[in-house]
Nucleic acid binder design. Structure first.
Lengths: 167, 167
DNA sequence: ACAAGAGAGTTGACGCGACAACTCACCTGA
DNA sequence: TCAGGTGAGTTGTCGCGTCAACTCTCTTGT
C-alpha cells in the first residue's frame, strides 16, 4: 500500500504559478464580459445564452428539451432559468405540439429587443477583451488545446453545437 | 450618430467557433476538477480555497480581512463561506486581538485533516487534466496570455498573491 | 464628553447552478 | 382495460456569489 503512491506528486512551484495566473486571467475575463452584459444590456450571461439560442431557432421557438440539448445544460437548470426569465418578461411558455402538456418556449417582444442589442454589445466586448490581444500564435495554440480538452473530457462522435458560444 | 457605429463589428464565424471551444473546454476542465474534489475529498472548490489559504497562514489562523485580501474575494463572500464552513465543522471563529470584536478564523482538526488530503488529490488532478496534456509551446503561450489579460483587466503594481492558485 | 464618521464584519435578498424527487402524459402489454 | 414503465418538465433544496444595507467598535473633531 505504501508503495502505490507514485501517481500524486504535487505540482512544482512554476506549475502552481502558471495554474494560478491561468485561472485568474480566465476568471477576470469572464467577470468582465458578464459585467459588460449586465451594465450595457441589463441581462446576465445565463439570460444571454438562452436568448441567443432561442433567437437562432427557426420561428424563435423551441421545446425545453431542445434548449437543454443545444445549451448543454441540465433540464432542471433550463427550467429554473426559464422561470426567472418568464418572470422578467423575456420569454413565454407556449403550448407546443397537439398533445396535452408539452410546453414550448418563445421570445417575447422584450426578449427580441434585448437579444438584438445584446449580441452586438457582447460580440464587441469579446473582440475587445479577447481577440484584440490574441496573437495568431496564441489563437492556434488555444484552438488546439480546446479541441484536446473537449475530446478528452467529453468525447463526442459529432461536432460542437455552436450555440453555447453565447457564454 | 449613424456613422459612429464602427466599433461593434460582430465576430467572424471562425472567431465564434474558437470562442465557443475555448469556453467549453474551460468549463469542462473546471467542472471536472470540482467534481474530483467533491468526489474524492467531499469538499467544494470554494472550501478548498479557504482551507488552503488558512493552512498556509502562520499559526493556521487569520482575520477575515486577511483571508479576503489573500483570496481576492469580497468580504461578504468570505463571511458567507465561513458561515457555511463553520456549520460543516471545518473552521471556527475565534476571538482575535485584544480589542472587543474582531473575529479571527482558524482551522479545526477536521479542517486540518481535510486540507492535507485535498491538496494531494487536487494537485494530482490538475496535473492529470491540465499539465499532462499541455505542450511546452502551449504552456508558454498560456503564460504570456494570462499575464497580458491580468495586467489588462486588473493592473497591479506588485506580483500575484499566489494563494488563489487553490482554484 | 459626545456626535459624526471610518473600518471591519455580518446579514438579507436574490440570481445562478447541481442534484434528487416528483408529476404528468404517453406508451406497452398481460 | 388497467398496471407499470418511460420520457419530458417541474419543483425543492442547498451551496456559491453579488449587491446593498446594517451593526459594532474604534477614532476624530469640536
Amino acid at each position: 500500500m505504501i508503495s502505490a503512491m507514485a501517481e500524486t506528486r504535487t505540482l512544482e512551484p512554476e506549475e502552481w504559478e502558471l495554474w494560478d495566473s491561468w485561472m485568474r486571467a480566465q476568471r477576470l475575463l469572464v467577470r468582465e464580459l458578464e459585467r459588460g452584459l449586465q451594465r450595457d444590456c441589463g441581462i446576465s450571461k445565463a439570460e444571454f445564452s438562452v436568448l441567443v439560442t432561442l433567437w437562432q431557432a427557426p420561428g424563435r421557438e423551441m421545446r425545453v428539451g431542445e434548449l437543454s440539448e443545444s445549451l448543454d445544460w441540465a433540464k432542471s437548470r433550463v427550467s429554473h432559468q426559464l422561470t426567472r426569465m418568464e418572470n422578467r418578461g423575456f420569454v413565454e411558455r407556449t403550448p407546443y405540439g397537439a398533445d396535452g402538456r408539452r410546453a414550448g418556449i418563445g421570445l417575447t417582444d422584450q426578449g427580441r429587443r434585448a437579444v438584438q442589442s445584446a449580441i452586438l454589445v457582447h460580440a464587441g466586448n469579446i473582440r475587445r477583451y479577447f481577440f484584440d490581444s490574441l496573437t495568431p500564435q496564441q489563437a492556434a495554440e488555444f484552438r488546439a488545446w480546446s479541441g484536446q480538452m473537449i475530446e478528452r473530457i467529453e468525447p463526442r462522435p459529432s461536432e460542437s453545437t455552436g450555440d453555447d458560444a453565447a457564454q
